[in-house]
Design a protein around this nucleic acid. Sequence first.
RNA 1: GCCCGGGUGGUGGAAUGGUAGACACGCAGGACUUAAAAUCCUGUGGCUGUAGAGGCCGUACGGGUUCGAGUCCCGUCCCGGGCACCA
Length: 1070
Amino acid sequence: MPPQSRQGGCFFHNPVNKSTNQHSMEYRPSDIEPKWRKWWRENQTYRIDNRNGKPKFYVLDMFPYPSGAGLHVGHPLGYIATDILSRYKRLRGFSVLHPMGFDSFGLPAEQYAIQTGIHPAISTEQNIVRYREQLDNIGFSYDWEREVRTSDPRFYKWTQWIFMQLFNCYYDRDADKALPISHLTEIFSKKGNKAVNASCDDDTPVVSAEEWNAMSEREQQLFLLKYRLTYPGEAYVNWCPALGSVLSNDEVKDGVSERGGHPVERKLMKQWNMRITAYADRLLDGLEAIDWPESIKEQQRNWIGRSAGASVRFAVDGHEGVEIEVFTTRLDTIYGATFMVLAPEHELVSRLTTDEQRQEIDSYIKWTASRSEVERMSEVKKVTGAFTGAFAINPFNGERIQIWIADYVLAGYGTGAVMAVPSGDQRDWLFATHFDLPIIPILDAQEGLENAADPTKEGRYINSGIINGMTYAEAVPTLIQWLEERALGKGKIQYKLRDAVFSRQRYWGEPVPAYWKDGVPHLIDERDLPLVLPNIDKYLPTETGEPPLARAENWRYAPLNGEGEERYEYEHSTMPGWAGSSWYFYRYMDPHNEDAFCSKEASDYWQQVDFYLGGSEHAVGHLLYSRFWNHFLHDLGLVPHREFAKKLVNQGMIQGRSNFVFRAKESFFEQYLHLKVLKPFFAEHGPMRIAKTEVEGSFKYDFAFGTNDLAIEVTSWKQEEKIERVRKTAHGDGKRLMVLYSETLIDHINEPEAIAEKVRQALESRENFIADLERPVCEQLFVSQSLLYKYHPDSFTKLHVDVGVVEADVLNLEKARRLPMFEKANFKLDPDKKYICAWEVEKMSKSKYNVVNPDDVVAEYGADCFRMFEMFLGPITDAKPWNTQGITGVSGFLKKFWRLFFSGKDGAFSVTEDTPTAEELRALHHCIKKVTDDVERMSMNTCVSHFMIATNDLHRLNCAKRTILEPLVVMLAPFGPHIAEELWHRLGHATTVCDATWPTHNEEYLKSDTKEYPIQINGKLRATVTLPTDVSKEDAEKAALALEQVQKWLDGQAPKKVVFVPGRMINVVV
RNA sequence: GCCCGGGUGGUGGAAUGGUAGACACGCAGGACUUAAAAUCCUGUGGCUGUAGAGGCCGUACGGGUUCGAGUCCCGUCCCGGGCACCA
């Protein structure tokens, strides 16, 4: 018996005392797991304080959207991994923040509200309760005191507050940070806007101080919108009149709405924007400083799409005043530009085309227009184009170059014009080769130009006027300076990034804390936050197409809160899903603060997220917008770091493994009858043939025997008309007719002899019409996948079947028959009496019947087993299909681990205080070393393996010693917290295992006197020899060469060389 | 087309340039049992073989570096993800 707890407060809570008297000491997760979850809750084991002397560690999961479908086994994969990391860090003495919350604004709840009229807050609350239950079931160490919900007014108050700060700021490029608008207006009033280097709209006019001061208040406010970091603008959206809503890009398929297939139109709508473009450079540069997956960084770089280059204006020969502007990232290649290509849609095409070329150009444009976007994009290798007859002048050398049009240049990109450099660009090279245009080498390092372009930047320029002999680094500034001096162009940085649309014409989102007065938006007073979402009668747009919030009655703002004062309309759109998730990680630090989104004290302690885990699908949405907001909050001095997450890891998706069954179609039964039943009769009654004459578009009979007057028709007994028709035909032909109901075949599907017997009787009978009078039982037949190859593939309908009734791809017939789809079904089984299902890996989703609920797995194997199995599947970063094959291995491990402690008589607790042997210590310390290393690098799957190895070793050694087992319990605690807590208390501890200390390994115990050295001959393993670990090179070589195996390979010769790697191997080179 | 991953037994997967296939599933055989479950033991990359010896092949394919390559380099093919002619 373990020594009893004496630690007052915890004594009553120590549930071990209740269960120690139970006679069986079997490992029963269903007993111990709920017990400890309750205990943790009562003892507030996972509560974490902001004030303590420990070093901090912040582990964050991407919080889930609480959907109605509940949690599936894919969600917890990341949560388990971070839970292990968190518990591990805690055991290593860190104060760990590991919170969870809900991204609870979103479309599905709104869609549900539209259908049912139930307020999204209610359905969301229900879904959250369900998620909580499911999460709690898995034994996570979240501090639920810190839970956040983005749809909670106490939370979105601060989302709105941050929005207001954005509205009140502009981006000052000289200060390289956001500054208050008041700073801007001060400069405007003294020096005009030319004195400010700030991010603003492209069309912002230059105003002097006088002009600014002469503006009305309203005009000034409108002007300032061009600078604010959030501002109302106009944007094209996918408007679907039939659904009365705006759709996201992926809700639109082939120009119609995905749901319902309604037409979608591009509509210009007033939308709030976020001036994220102001931060483009910082978002790009910031990537260097963070430990995020390269693929995510790359996606963000591509999204930001910064390209440094130059815009150059080309004059057109014979067209005074006409200039074609091109943007190029390789200005250094301009002397190699031997022609120019315009998009067929380019506005100058018609003007520049000469009369001789007019017809060719027109027909090319016509042809282009007929091609779909897909064609234009996919036919990369095909070169097409047409010459306009016009010539552009290269500003650097005055060369006349031909102007062509080609559909590989798109009007929407850049200026819709390209200067073509065939020696450096492969597409231009193909074009030049095809149309026999000149190719001029421009760098002495370019090679193989007769076969392909060479885009190198190496070497020195040739044929390149003012940059001849220069390197790339020298050439670019020289060219730009030349251009700028002559005002023919300028150095330019282009971004693909656009300002982010921040409005949604939806109900279930954060209201924008602004109201409209004379067409100008104003912020509401901070005192009036949160601006709470009003109730409305229907969750749909108004008849006039206004967003749902326009339905709210009397929802207007009184800036002075005065009675009888004029009230103004609030903004009616709401914020997008990414608003709340762009800063939520700070709220966890200080979740109940009513005076700030997060106190300085809290953010000073927790700093930034140390480890963030989530899916890569958020690469450019959430993860870019969060960085943007964080940079902004940092500019305001509200958060300590520019980047909110130091390290990010992507978890792989757990895919569903769908199972399929095959339902037989009519034609299957004819094939079946032929193959399984009729063949034995051929010898006797001649080969079966199908009557050639067609009746009413189908064959006369399914089967008829050559030497017998019997015809056989296979059909459903419900097809009374058909049966009657065939019967008449048979009568006319003088044939006897047997009708075999397909349902009868289904009833006897696994016993073809029964049907054969019916046919035999029919053949011997003299009756003209033979059909069963009994009504068959089954109506549908499902054929095992293993039998399909015998039949025509079109004879089956492939259907998803609930994976819950399939075990290892074998259909559980008993369970399956309870499903409606199999209610009147029979199954054609393979010779092993099994129904084999087909399988495919697909996204896990309700509609594919492949969703596996963690609760079911937890109920069967326990939460600890579930946790460890998910980890055991493989590296967390890899995508993999869910497959419980193999869970028994983890389950067996836990039982085995448990038995280490209960190996006494009748499974009594049997841990001893004996001194461990060297071998036992080696097993333990090897495990400590491996698991510690592996947790640090998030290799949870190999950790589980090492626990298994240690357990197997200790079993073999019959080890039940506290010195060995107790450290193992501590190490297991992050992985299987329930079993560890139970064993920890059994070992006599009264406080939680979470506060134990992670063991450290002692290299001394791992040392071994001998080592089995592999002996290689020319790098191939040929023998092994056991040598002292600290064997000298000479002795090792001597021992190796003495081996019979080695002598055989040496064949009397001396070795050329012997390589000895101490502690590793010996390689003899012959 | 470009960018980023990846390709290892029947399966999931191990392997700081140093004994490829740890650990587990599955499968086969055995022990215990009236039986089953549970548990335990043995075997399990392929071919060959004198079969508990030995040999050959083997980490997508072809080369290379190295005493030694799953790992590093070059080229090819295939799979997954991202971007879409970004000039």
